[in-house]
Amino acid sequence: MFAFTYKRFFSAVAMVGVISLQPASADSDVDPLEGFNRSVYSFNKAVDRVVYKPLAQAYTSVTPDLVEKGVHNFFSNIGDVTTLLNSVLQLKGEASAISLSRIMFNTTFGLGGVLDVATPMGLREQTEDFGQTLGYWGAPSGPYVVLPLLGPSNVRDTVGLAVDINTDVWGREAKPTDSKNVGTGLRLLDRRVQLFPAERLVSGDEYVFVRDAYMQRREFLVQDGRFDQQFDESDF
């Protein structure tokens, strides 16, 4: 039993290695829309360069760190509702319990979500969305798609995103509309700020890097970090 698990572990490690080393080998399977995607990608890139990134940089330099953290926590707490919903849909008992506890503690003791008191309590943030739920129940990711303004996705996650946006607590409940829009703006700025550290990792062909990183990350999230596939040792 031990030897078996051991072997699988190394197969998994080897597998990850192979994927990372040969990203281009399965291009046509993963990315049949490459031509379209690349043009959308460069459009997004231009918008980001001219508008989104400068705004996010201005936001992060002007706003005190404490306030920025509060904004981030507030919207993370709202995002936890989406996570809870999807943990339940994936029949994950303990993850659902953790998300429920996070929401209840952060909303009350955390003053409406501005403070993240749950994490120091040992309740780590989970991330689940409807794309992952579809993946959990066996829906394949489909080809890679770059959405205008929204960025990297795939067919499955595009469907998921539509559901997530429609069930989002902020989008549904926030009133009046003015405040809601300001909030949504802050949320988008916060989201962009969170990506700053990741930007430094990009190397080589940026389009390919982002695509492979995205597809692998999503696969990893759907599997919750497990690799359940059976490997044929003769492949290696």
Binding site: G93, E94, A97, S101, M121, G122
Partner: peptide, 9 residues
């Protein structure tokens, strides 16, 4: 009730 770690739901 369901308990996990120091948390109980």
């Amino acid at each position: 009730s369901y308990a996990f770690g120091d948390t109980k739901v």
